[in-house]
Every structure is written in structure tokens, then in C-alpha cells.
Design a protein around this nucleic acid. Structure first.
Length: 684
DNA sequence: GCACGGATAAACATCT
DNA sequence: CAGATGTTTATCCGTG
């Protein structure tokens, strides 16, 4: 209190702030809506694809091996003389996904394991061939469609990148298996000779294997066919994906129909991921075969009068044309976003963004529930997070809310995430807040040094929008984020309010409380500068001041060092993913800014550093006391989150990586998320 | 125990 | 005058 008053008296008064003319020059630009309308940069996640492919291959192989192990007429009369297979009932009942490599090692003989690897390799090989085919298809298209050449070139780049990724993933997978003692193959070694396969399998099993492989080949045939159709039927840059979804499925038929693992549906799911068409569950009527044009027109008609126009701007993805009134906007819409290939493509991309978000939400919800289960919290409604949460939760914002908070944690949104968001809270705080009535308000512990606000928001944007969950950030961080999210980096108080309510369901009630807090923070913190405008006053962020107040907290945490070390192992892998993702996003969306944003955001996610942390680093760096040669990743590790539970981190990291990257490719406001981490340069 | 930062509440002033 | 906006102070709490 005393300190605050001492420092705040220095703070500039409204009168002398009027002199800040550079920031008030854009008097008409205020009030940009941030975050809700920017669903333009959603993109396929190659990492998702690769993971799915890997899992797919694993499942296929495991299922096959499992059949090999269980499908024998009699375990005692095993045809594999090297290693009579004894499969426990429980093991046989397990789904293929539940069988770990170690378990497989126990139940499989070396030849079988080699077979398993060969299947994987075959699988990868086929996928690579598919990608090559698609690449060729795209090249053909490029020849015919000079106008789309640039975009296609980018797509080719993305495909090539995926090829590289796939190869890397394959090698990595094999290496992992080797490390686990599953395989003796050298990385560069080819597939297992047929003879060894025959030794390991009975003829029927071999048949099964070849059917699996044949299914892929069959797919290729169809893809060629579809590719031709593609070039004749459509010229837009995304239509290829629509055509490629279907062929994989119906042509992968098995005469005996007993290979349940390598089902068409599963094929579709990962192929869909690649083509950015969603899987069965996510296919929309549009993507399931409705004519593209109807898709376009329906969407356009539905949204033109509302969602695509706001604050005098056209909100068509990537447009932002200024329109004074609705009439002008309609005119603009009809002229610039008429029914053509480009609009159709953009519409498709938008659809895919939505689908991707849905998938992402499902993943995150699943992870949250697993985490809650691990922490002995009871998710009372398993599907809770797949739907908009009840915003009229009985909880109240202020201290009172802790009083009415039952110990049994019956409110998943609040109990699970209020103490802290799912990904960061340790059990201790959960218990302290939920069991001891401390309440979620006093849980500043992680407000600053957990995930970056930008990436956290990007990752859980939809969650916070719908769930009545308090965001784990300080008011100052949120305000700053809201302001920096806008193009002109200034917001009126009311716009800040709107941002809060728009982005967080939690702030849609108890408005007096948090609005007061917002005002209080705006006034209190020197980093928020009030600028008089023609229209009124707007608030801007003084990034230097914002950073000034944070460094002291980050010094010498033992946990920090520990996490730095633990985080190192993931960095190199991430780097390739980042690069690949940047390439992919560049190619698929043809947007340089998106590429940078995706890369930056991915970096954010990968080292899971808080914005405060990043800013701190930047500041230190700018002062010259840090080595300038460190890469962002290295910085990220150095300042790694200190409060992230280590075991949780390890468990969730691969998923988090995938999810994060996916999200960053598809979430709105990514460009601003990037700026979140580069505030100093951006603001000057 | 203390310093500090953040959240909350509230009083007050000013502006629209 | 009411409401919005902005400032300031006080208090509580969690963390280091």
C-alpha cells in the first residue's frame, strides 16, 4: 500500500497524458474486436496428422500381432515354434491401443516383433507414397491453374514438409522401439524379409498383412482417379482435400471383414486430418458431399449481415476492408467475396478451422478429465466440456464463492479449473482452495509464471469462452493482452470490458466486481497509459513499464532450474515441428504473417513460458546481460515455468505439443499472440 | 514475520 | 441527476 502510493504518485496525470499524441492519432481505429472474428488462420496440423498416422500404424500392427497371438486355434499348438504365445485373457481383451510396447514384447516373439516393425515401415512407406501422389496432383493442378500457382506452390511445400516429417517420425519411431528393446533393426535397415515374416506367421496372417498393405495401395489407385476428377471439377486450392477423404474408406475392403483395426473409419480419420477434412464424427454436411457452391452461398447469406461485419470492417477472413455502413458492406461483400473459387476456399478453410477447434476441444476435455481423475477430482459430467457450460453457475465471483463451495467438488468447471487451469495446478493448491474454503480468488500463485497468456488463451480460448472458469491470469495481464490484441493497440474502457465478457464466460457476471478491478488495475499500473482521443480516452500499454514490474520474481528458483533441465529433451524435436508447421501454415494459408505467428506461437507453446517470463527475458536481453545468441527455445527452457508439475508436464507434453501447435495454427488472434511475446519491438 | 503483488471493495472526483 | 470513467485508499490473501 505504501509502496503503491509512493510509486503511483509519480504516475502521469490525465492532464499531462494528453501530450501523448502518437498513440492517439488513430482516433477512429479504436474498438477493434479482437479474438472473436479472426478465425482465418486455422490450418491443418501436420503434427496431428503424424501422430495419428503413427497411432494408426501402431494399431494396425498391434492388432495384427494381437490377432496373431490370440487368433490361433490353440495356444498350445502354436504354429510359431520359436515362441509359443501365451496371451492372458486380460491382454486379449485389451484394445490395441492399450497394449504397450513392453506388453507386446512379452507376448510376441522376435520374428513377430520384426513383423510388427515391417508393418509400420510399410505403412509409413505407403503414406509417403500417398503424399507424393498428392504432390504430383498438385503439380498438375499448378500447371493448369496459373492463377492459383502461388497457393499451390505453398501447398506443395507443405506436402514436402509433411513428407520430411513423416520420414523423421518413422525413424524416430523405429528408434524408440529399438530403445525399448523391441527391435534389433538398425535404423536404416529395410523391412523384414518375407521369409522371416513367413516364419512368424501362419499363411492366413500373412494374407491379412498383405490385405492391410493392399488397402493402402488400393487407396493410391483411387487417389489417382480422384486426382483426375479433382483437376477437372474444381480449381480451388482446397478442394483436393475434399476429394481425398472419401477414397481411402470405401476401397479399403476386406473380404472377410475381420480386420477391425484397420477399418475404413480409422483410415478416414487420419487421412481426414491430413486433408483437413474431419473424421466421420466431424464431417459436416458440407464436407460430406454437398456441393461446394451451396456451401459457400449458405454460409455467406447467413453471416453477411451479422458476423462478417463489425466496427466498420469486413470480417471476412483476411479482408478487413473498411465499410462505412451496412450497405457499403453488402456491396463489398458481393463484389469482393462473391461466389468464386477464392471465397469457396476461404469458406472451406473456415469450416476446417471450426472442425479443428472441435477436435481440439475434445482432446483437451479428455485430457482434463484424465488429469482430474489423476488428481482424484471427480468430473461429475463427463461430457461437460464438450458443450457450452452453464454460465449461470451458482458460484459467485467474490470471496463468498468459496463459502458455498462444497468439498465434494461437484462443479467441474469451477472446481477443476478455478483454482487454476487444468494444466498447471498441483494437487496441493486444489486441496487448499477447495477443501479449506480459501476459494479460487486467492490463487495468484500461478498467475504469472505458468503458461503464456497468449498461448494459454489460444489453447483454451473456446474453453474460457464457454466455461464459467476464472482465467488464471492477472487483470493486468488480461488487460494488456486485450489491448495488444487490437491492431492499434488501444482500447477504451468499454472495449476492454467487452473483451473480457467476450473472451471469458467467467466475466459475464459479477460485472461490478471485475469491472472495478479492471479500472483499478488500469489506474494502478503505470504500464497502462490513458490517452485522450478525439472520441474520448483510450488505454494503451507501456510495455517497458509492464516489463519493469516483473523481473524480480524470476530470480533463482530451484524449481525453475529443474524444469529447465527437464524441458531440454523436448526442444530439439519441437524445433523441427515448429519449422514444419511454419512451412505448412505458409503453404496452406499462403499467409506470411500466419507463418510467423504460427511459428512464434508454437515456440510459445513449446517452452510453455509465461508472457511475463518471456518479456522478462527480453528485457534482460535488451539490457545486454544475457547472451544474445540464445534461441527462443533456449530462452524458453531457461525460464521454464517453475510451477508446472513435473510429472504432469511429462505426461501431457506430447499431447500438449500437438494440441498446442494445432491450436496455434487454427486459433484466432495468433498474430497478436506472437506480439505478446515480442512486445518491445512490436510496440515501437 | 515481513515485504510484496494481486484481488477486492469502496469512497471520491470528474466527465458525459 | 445518473451512469460511466478514473483515482485512490484500505484490506485481505498468497507467495517468497
Amino acid at each position: 500500500m505504501m509502496v503503491e502510493s509512493a510509486t503511483e504518485t509519480i504516475r502521469t496525470t490525465p492532464s499531462n497524458q494528453n501530450g501523448v499524441s502518437s498513440l492517439s492519432s488513430q482516433s477512429d481505429g479504436g474498438g477493434r474486436e479482437g479474438g472473436s472474428n479472426g478465425d482465418t488462420n486455422g490450418e491443418i496440423s501436420p503434427v496431428d496428422l503424424l501422430h495419428l498416422q503413427q497411432q494408426q500404424a501402431l494399431q494396425a500392427a498391434r492388432q495384427f500381432i494381437l490377432q496373431q497371438a490370440t487368433g490361433l486355434n490353440s495356444p498350445s499348438s502354436n504354429e510359431i515354434k520359436q515362441s509359443p504365445v501365451q496371451v492372458p485373457v486380460s491382454m486379449a481383451m485389451m484394445t490395441p491401443q492399450m497394449i504397450t510396447p513392453q506388453q507386446m514384447q512379452q507376448i510376441l516373439s522376435p520374428p513377430q516383433l520384426q513383423c510388427y516393425i515391417s508393418i509400420l515401415q510399410e505403412y509409413y512407406k505407403k503414406q509417403q507414397e500417398q503424399l507424393h501422389l498428392q504432390l504430383l496432383t498438385q503439380q498438375q493442378q499448378a500447371g493448369k491453374q496459373a492463377k492459383e500457382q502461388q497457393q499451390l506452390g505453398n501447398k506443395q511445400l507443405a506436402f514436402q514438409q509433411q513428407l520430411i516429417q513423416m520420414q523423421q517420425l518413422q525413424q524416430q519411431h523405429i528408434l524408440n522401439l529399438q530403445r525399448q528393446g523391441l527391435v534389433n533393426l538398425q535404423p536404416g535397415q529395410g523391412a523384414v524379409p518375407i521369409q522371416s515374416l513367413q516364419q512368424a506367421m501362419c499363411p492366413t496372417d500373412l494374407q491379412q498383412l498383405w490385405k492391410d498393405v493392399a488397402g493402402v495401395q488400393c487407396t493410391e489407385e483411387v487417389m489417382k482417379h480422384e486426382g483426375l476428377d479433382l483437376t477437372t471439377n474444381s480449381s480451388n486450392t482446397t478442394s483436393y482435400s475434399a476429394s481425398k477423404v472419401s477414397p481411402q474408406i470405401p476401397h479399403h475392403t476386406l473380404p472377410n471383414g475381420q480386420n477391425s483395426v484397420h477399418t475404413p473409419k480409422r483410415d478416414r480419420s487420419w487421412i481426414s486430418s491430413f486433408t483437413k477434412e474431419s473424421s466421420d464424427e466431424h464431417l459436416t454436411p458440407y464436407s460430406k458431399g454437398a456441393p461446394l457452391q451451396s456451401t459457400h452461398s449458405t454460409h455467406e447469406e447467413h453471416t453477411a449481415s451479422h458476423s462478417l461485419y463489425g466496427h466498420g470492417e469486413c470480417k471476412w477472413p483476411g479482408c478487413e476492408a473498411l465499410c462505412e455502413d451496412m450497405g457499403q458492406f453488402i456491396k463489398h461483400l458481393n463484389s469482393e467475396h462473391a461466389l468464386d473459387d477464392r471465397s469457396t476456399a476461404q469458406c472451406r478453410v473456415q469450416m476446417q478451422v471450426v472442425q479443428q477447434l472441435e477436435i481440439q476441444l475434445a482432446k483437451e476435455s479428455e485430457r482434463l478429465q484424465a488429469m482430474m481423475a489423476h488428481l482424484h477430482m471427480r468430473p461429475s459430467e463427463p461430457k461437460h466440456f464438450n458443450q457450452p457450460l452453464n454460465l449461470a453457475s451458482s458460484m459467485s465471483l467474490s470471496k463468498r464463492e468459496s463459502e458455498g463451495f462444497p468439498e465434494g467438488l461437484p462443479h467441474p468447471p469451477t472446481s477443476a479449473a478455478t483454482p487454476i487451469t487444468p494444466m498447471r495446478q498441483g494437487p496441493s493448491v486444489i486441496s487448499s482452495s477447495s477443501l479449506h474454503g480459501v476459494g479460487p480468488i486467492r490463487r495468484r500463485n500461478s498467475d504469472k509464471f505458468c503458461t503464456p497468456i497468449a498461448s494459454e488463451l489460444a489453447q483454451n480460448c473456446e474453453f474460457y469462452k464457454n466455461a464459467d472458469v476464472r482465467p488464471p491470469f492477472t487483470y493486468a495481464s488480461l488487460i494488456r493482452h486485450a489491448i495488444l490484441e487490437t491492431s492499434d493497440r488501444q482500447l477504451t474502457l468499454n472495449e476492454i470490458y467487452n473483451w473480457f465478457t467476450r473472451m471469458f464466460a467467467y466475466f459475464r457476471r459479477n460485472t461490478a466486481t471485475w469491472k472495478n478491478a479492471v479500472r483499478h488495475n488500469l489506474s494502478l499500473h503505470k504500464c497502462f497509459v490513458r490517452v485522450e482521443n478525439v472520441k474520448g480516452a483510450v488505454w494503451t500499454v507501456d510495455e517497458v513499464e509492464y516489463q519493469k514490474r516483473r523481473p524480480p520474481k524470476m530470480t533463482g528458483s530451484p524449481t525453475l532450474v529443474k524444469n529447465m533441465i527437464s524441458g531440454l529433451g523436448f526442444g530439439s524435436l519441437n524445433a523441427s515441428y515448429q519449422a514444419a508447421l511454419a512451412e505448412s501454415s505458409l503453404g496452406l494459408l499462403n499467409s506470411p504473417t500466419l507463418m510467423n505467428n504460427s511459428t512464434g506461437a508454437s515456440l510459445n507453446m513449446l517452452h510453455i513460458g509465461h508472457d511475463d517470463v518471456s518479456s522478462t527475458v527480453e528485457q534482460v536481453n535488451s539490457n545486454g546481460s544475457c547472451s544474445p545468441g540464445l534461441s527462443p527455445q533456449q530462452y524458453g527452457h531457461q525460464v521454464h515455468v517453475k510451477e508446472e508439475p513435473a510429472e504432469m508436464e511429462e505426461d501431457s507434453r506430447p499431447m500438449s505439443l500437438m494440441a498446442s501447435v494445432t491450436q496455434n495454427l487454427s486459433m484466432p488472434g495468433d498474430e497478436r499472440d506472437m506480439e505478446e511475446e515480442l512486445p518491445t519491438e512490436e510496440l515501437e
